[in-house]
Every structure is written in C-alpha cells, then in structure tokens.
Computed example of a mutant assay.
Amino acid sequence: MSKKKVLIINQNIAEYRIPILNLLSEYYELTFLHTEPKKYGTKLKFKEKVVANINLPFFSFLKVNLHKYCNQFDVVISEANIRYLDRDMLIINPFRNYKWIGWGIGVSASYDKKFDQNNKFDCVRHFIFKKADANIFYSDYPVEKYISAGFSKESLFVANNTTEVFYDESVNYEKNSILFVGTLYKQKKIYELLKAYKEAAETVNDIMPLNIIGGGEEFENIKSWISQNKLEDKVSLLGPIFDQKLLAKYFRSAYACISPGQAGLSVLTSMGYGAPFVTVKDAITGGEIFNIKNGENGILYNNHSELPDIIKNIAERPDLYVEMGLKAREHYVKSRTPEQMAGAIRDAVDYVISK
C-alpha cells in the first residue's frame, strides 16, 4: 500500500523538530512547505518546498497558489495561527478535498505576553479551527477549553511538545553546578538570576558555580555585571554551545537548570538530561511549564524574592535536587520522547484519514 501524502506548512523548519519530522516520514510521504532557504540537506528524510512570504499588518500569506498545491496531498497540517490569512481561508473552505489539521499552542502566547493572557481573539480562533478536521496541541491545557467551545473531543489531540536529548547511559557525570541555558535578553529575567545567585553566595560557603550558556544582546552587559560584582570565580559566561555532547555534560552536571522568566523547550531538554527545572509560576511558556510538578521534578516559585532561598536550598540540600532530577528524567523517558510526540501526530493524521 502506498503511503498517504502529508504536507506540513510552517514558516521555517526548526532544527529541534527534525527528529520528529523524520519519524513521521517513515509512515507518510511527507513534504514540508516553508519560507526560509534550505539549510539542513541530508539531515532531512522528507521533501521540502520553499516559497516566498508576504507580510501585511497583522496578517501574512504565502506567495503560492496554496489551494492548488494542497490538492496534491491527502492531509495538510499547519500552524494554528489566525494571522495566516491564506491558511485560514482554506480551513473554512467547504469544498477542499484534502483533510486539514491545525497544530500549535491552542491559546495566545508570545515572548511578551503570559500564556492564555489575551483571549480577545478566542472567538475568531475557535470559528476558524472548528472547521479543521482535527487539532493538535502542544499540551493538554487547551483541550477542555475547546470542548467547552463546541469542538468534538475526538478531533482534539495532544502531541506534547518536546525535543531530542543525547543521553549516553554509559557515561556518568558528577553533579557540581547550577545552569542557565538560553538566549540572553531581559525578558528571560537573567538579571534576577544573577542577583539571586549573588545574594545566596554571600551567605553560603563554597556555593556551587553558576554556568550560563547562550549568546544575545545582553551578553556583554552580563559579562560586565559579573566583573563588577567580583563573581568571575563563581559565574562562567560560556556563550552559545552547539556541541550536543558538551551540552549534555553541562545539563547532566547540573543540580538544577534555572530560568526565571521563560519555560519553553529548555524544560524538556533539562528533564531529559535529569536536571530539575526551576522557574516562576507565571513564566512565559508555550505550555511546556505544565510538565513541572512543584517539589517533585522541578520548582515553581511564586515571585522572584524566593529565588535566593531556592539557590541556597540547592547548595545546602543537593540530595533533594538529585532526586528531583531522577524524577524529571523518568517523566521525559515515560511520556515526552520524540517518538511519543510523533505517535500523537500520527494518531491525528490517521483519524482524519479515516473520517
């Protein structure tokens, strides 16, 4: 039997998505339509098509006869974003012959707005994506909300957002540090972490070092801050690291990964490597924060004034964080691997094909 033809539409192919997409290509004849230059070559086990993107105020659309192109496929999966005018029109088109699946967070979220904070466009979002044949969410948070809005429960799927980790069981690492990983800009509250670490270091003898991995607009300012506060022997600003083995070493050597302002895919990376994730309860997130069970596999605190005490607690009771790290790793292995995410997407595809 020939494979069903599946098209995924997004603005770009995120590198962390490639393992999931490659897994899907084992079951479907997969094509990815995007707007950026090709750059991954033989890493991809699926076809890609690049088209231009046209941006308007609030809306954007692809410079291609999208309906004609989609007619070549059995199923189309696209990012569930109401700003993509051409995709919105095809979703509500009652005469399309191909099945359509929306895929995304399911609620409003961005780098400057809290998760599900802005719901003024919910009625528009629900009107459009109720016309899709199915919807896939990054977490189970939106499911009940969509059912309450009149969506069929059977048409809603959860492919928990995740990323691949490179965990070598044959190698052991000694826990010896605290970690921050991410682009260095103010929204991630990196200075809250630095100030909290400094406060903790002033009262805890031989506090464990803080490793900061990442580059960005605040890199030089952070470097100056570390020098001005005489923390060069405690805080290492390591810059971006792309070597997966080296990243694995830093994650697995960390008692905890702390990100005061954002809880995105680093939550899953940290858990996959056995480091509990520490963040504020209302951190910017795409739903990944819901993986954290406070005090069990990570820490969710109420406000930033609590962070110095958390860092002190890591230094004074490291055994607690080793145990949380083991539970974080267990959570990842049991329910958040790329194979499990790809499996949930397959469930949605098979559902719409069977309709």
Score class of each variant (00 low, 15 high):
257 C>Y: 01
303 N>L: 08
1 M>Y: 09
97 N>C: 06
219 F>N: 01
21 L>C: 06
27 Y>W: 12
165 V>F: 08
95 F>L: 07
156 L>E: 10
158 V>S: 00
296 E>L: 14
331 H>Q: 13
117 Q>N: 13
94 P>A: 00
91 I>A: 00
237 L>H: 07
318 P>E: 08
24 L>H: 09
112 D>W: 12
242 F>Y: 15
118 N>I: 13
336 R>Q: 11
70 C>G: 04
123 C>E: 15
146 Y>S: 05
122 D>V: 08
296 E>G: 06
275 A>E: 01
350 D>H: 07
272 G>I: 09
352 V>N: 08
59 F>S: 05
122 D>K: 06
176 N>L: 08
228 Q>E: 15
311 I>C: 04
175 K>D: 13
250 Y>N: 04
352 V>M: 10
224 S>Y: 11
16 Y>H: 10
259 S>F: 12
273 Y>V: 11
27 Y>I: 11
340 Q>M: 07
145 K>R: 06
283 A>H: 04
98 Y>K: 01
101 I>G: 00
84 Y>K: 09
244 Q>M: 14
218 E>K: 14
173 Y>N: 03
99 K>T: 05
21 L>N: 04
43 K>M: 12
267 V>H: 01
51 V>E: 08
276 P>N: 11
99 K>A: 03
63 K>C: 12
325 G>I: 14
124 V>Y: 12
27 Y>G: 15
349 V>L: 04
172 N>I: 10
237 L>K: 01
24 L>S: 00
74 D>P: 12
184 L>M: 14
321 Y>T: 00
